[in-house]
């Protein structure tokens, strides 16, 4: 049985751990501290926690001011509101002056499920990635989340860290290290490589294992930092396998898939098949139902891999 852990739990726990020695860490939340798990920090260090009420724009601005005053603010709410409601505050008050603010958004992606499309953040990576000087991180699991939180505290500058709501199977072990901008090659393959972030990394590992039994050699690269992208890892994957499948719990427009396609198109052109949320709104539903509707499943990723391999041989898209 694979271990199931919630990245947001590890975010909350790691903050408490780091806050013990690093007194500059302050945390802000918009009335969702129970959900984002910043409530753990609030309980441990009430003087360094600021609940901002349902006011995301003000939260980001206040965080920017705290950073200008020498603090290391973590500002948390749901991904939809962190990235959407406060986009311009992040652009103007945080990224433009390179304020040392860490926006940690939970409930990212479509697995928010039953809350419906109003809460399913599927565009956040794209709109955060478009901002100059922004670092965008989507960890693959709870252990990578803990490591990423440690890394962003050490990094001086604006960060957008996106987490899901649910418990997901883990990919790594406790004690995993994290370097911003570095991908991890999890599995080598010479016919096609999955480049993934978030929950899709584990799904891609399963897809690659099944493909192997079916005679297709598929690699998996975990790409938790979408910006700055690990360009050499992308080019290496393109060189070694000649076909790429990207998978992310995010719209196919502007996210990880776009970042990979841009890089490959300008360096080592090979087929790139993007799997993600199609350009539409879905509905409420269970995470599993919604992931399946998007093809963000083992079956969906395998199909995409075969399509990429076919494209490599016949460089005209084959329609099913």
């Amino acid at each position: 049985m694979v271990e199931m852990l919630a990245p947001r739990d590890f975010y909350g726990k790691t903050l408490v751990e780091l806050g013990k020695t690093n007194k500059d860490i302050v945390v802000l939340d918009c009335d969702l501290s129970g959900s984002t798990r910043t409530s753990l920090f609030a309980k441990a260090y009430p003087d360094r926690f600021f609940n901002m009420g349902v006011a995301e724009q003000d939260m980001i601005g206040t965080a920017a001011g705290l950073a200008a005053g020498g603090k290391i603010p973590f500002a948390s709410t749901f991904a939809m509101f962190a990235s959407g409601r406060a986009w311009e505050q992040i652009r103007q008050s945080v990224a433009y002056p390179r304020a040392n603010v860490k926006v940690v958004a939970s409930h990212g992606g479509i697995t928010v499920g039953p809350d419906g499309p109003s809460h399913q953040a599927g565009e956040d990576i794209a709109i955060m990635r478009a901002i100059p000087d922004m670092t965008v991180i989507v960890p693959a699991d709870a252990y990578e989340t803990a490591a990423a939180v440690r890394a962003v505290v050490e990094y001086r500058g604006p960060v957008y860290l996106r987490l899901p709501r649910d418990k997901f199977p883990v990919v790594y072990k406790e004690g995993k290290t994290f370097e911003i901008g570095k991908a991890t090659l999890l599995r080598k393959g010479n016919e096609v490589t999955f480049i993934t972030c978030g929950l899709m990394t584990e799904t891609a590992l399963r897809a690659a294992a099944e493909l192997e039994t079916e005679g297709v050699s598929a690699g998996v690269v975990d790409m938790p930092t979408i910006k700055p992208l690990d360009v050499s890892a992308v080019i290496l994957a393109a060189q070694e396998s000649g076909a790429i499948v990207t998978a992310e719990e995010h719209t196919v427009i502007g996210g990880l898939g776009s970042a990979i396609a841009e890089t490959i198109g300008e360096s080592r052109p090979v087929p790139v098949v993007r799997v993600g949320i199609p350009d539409t709104y879905f509905s409420s539903g269970s995470p599993e139902e919604l992931l399946e509707a998007c093809g963000l499943t083992t079956v969906g990723l395998k199909e995409a891999a075969l399509r990429a391999v076919t494209l490599k041989k016949h460089p005209v898209r084959v329609r099913e």
Binding site: G61, G65, K71
Partner: peptide, 25 residues
């Protein structure tokens, strides 16, 4: 210049942040 502004409405939040930081310090 302590704080970057230009897009209206964003300065007071940042002033609050500076005041909170000063208070903590």
């Amino acid at each position: 210049v302590e704080i970057t502004t230009g897009s209206l409405g964003q300065g007071l939040s940042q002033a609050n942040g500076l005041a909170l930081a000063a208070q903590l310090n």
